[in-house]
Amino acid sequence: MHISEGVLSPPLLIAGAAITVVGTWIGLRKTRPKEVPLMAVLTSAFFVASLIHVPIGPSSVHLVLNGLIGLLLGFGAFPSILIALLLQALFFQFGGILVLGVNCTNMALPAIFVYILFKKYCESEKRIHRLVSGFLSGSLSIFLSTLLVAICLYLTGENFTAAAKTIVYAHLPVMIIEGLITAACIDFIYRVKPEMLKIDEIGAKNEI
């Protein structure tokens, strides 16, 4: 899902960087130094989760969990994903530096989208609501992310269309797995530590 450096055209890179700057600014605006350690440890947890490989048939996929990041952190998803991607670029050279904005936008916009759509159902008392909304946020965020990647490739040139379509199809199984895992995680967190679903409200209130 990481687009490599040198594929996209400069206007796209600038657009991605601009969206990332604005998103990160919004995400950090309400965050005080007090909440930074909490966000940081959760970001490293998501980074570690993205190293987990889940078996699917003869192959395996690694988790992305941007839907879960969105549901837990809300608008904090932008800075969190930005830092995770930056560390990936520095540690493993995945993605790149100039393309960071585009990659971050592709992952974080869907996260915020599912946060706005499904957050209130995740805190519902009915288990079925939590499971269904968790599944939908997990799979929808992956679908939208791949769609954004495909759109970026398509905007680069007509001849990228075949590659763009393949990316979307190849991620259909990932969508299902991400949906299942996000649903189970949300349900588990609701039962074990319900106050954790309120982190996205930090900054709005005075106490964590």
């Binding site: 350690p37 909490l38 966000m39 940081a40 440890v41 959760l42 490293s44 947890a45 570690v48 989760a49 987990i52 988790l63 969990l65 879960l68 837990l72 299942l180 895992i181 996000t182 649903a183 189970a184 995680c185 588990f188 967190i189 074990v192 530590k193 954790m196 982190i199």
Partner: peptide, 15 residues
């Protein structure tokens, strides 16, 4: 997913 959720919960408390 339960392992991931548990790691997240511990991360929250640690944070």
């Amino acid at each position: 997913s339960y392992m991931v959720a548990m790691v997240l919960i511990r991360a929250y408390e640690r944070g």
